[in-house]
Simulated scan of single mutants.
Amino acid sequence: MERIMVIGVSAGVGKSTFARRLGDNLNIEVHHLDTFYWRHGWVEAPLEDFISSQKEVLSHDKWIMEGN
């Protein structure tokens, strides 16, 4: 397993915690969709930026991504 997506339905169900622990155990960097989607002050990122950030991660050989 080198490309892992952790998906959940709502906030607070443990996605981030699980992804962090999995990343620590597998030595794979974890990326949180919230950090791509939300800018400072809870302002939504433009769709193009959100998609571009995800594509950049997907170009790597190993990753864990988590979000809704």
Rank of each mutant, 00 (worst) to 15 (best):
S59A: 13
T17E: 03
L22S: 04
D34P: 10
R20W: 01
V6L: 14
G12F: 11
L26Q: 08
F36W: 12
T17L: 07
M5L: 14
T35G: 01
L58W: 06
M1I: 14
D24C: 02
E44S: 11
M5E: 08
F50H: 08
V43S: 01
V57Q: 02
E29D: 12
W42K: 12
P46L: 13
P46Y: 10
E44Y: 07
N68Q: 07
V57D: 01
D61E: 15
W42D: 11
N27M: 04
I7W: 14
S10C: 08
T35H: 12
I51P: 12
G23D: 09
S59D: 07
H60Q: 09
L22F: 09
G12W: 10
I4G: 01
T35N: 12
D34A: 10
L58G: 04
K15D: 01
S52Y: 10
F18R: 00
Y37F: 15
N68E: 08
G23F: 10
L33Y: 10
W38F: 11
N25S: 09
M5H: 10
K55T: 08
F36C: 04
E29I: 07
E2Y: 11
R39D: 04
I51E: 15
N68K: 08
M1G: 10
S59C: 03
D61A: 15
S10H: 08
A11P: 14
V6G: 13
H32P: 00
R39C: 04
A45Q: 07
R3M: 06
A19L: 09
R3A: 05
I28F: 11
G41R: 07
L33E: 02
I7G: 12
E66W: 09
V13F: 04
E56A: 06
H60V: 03
V13H: 03
H40F: 13
F18G: 00
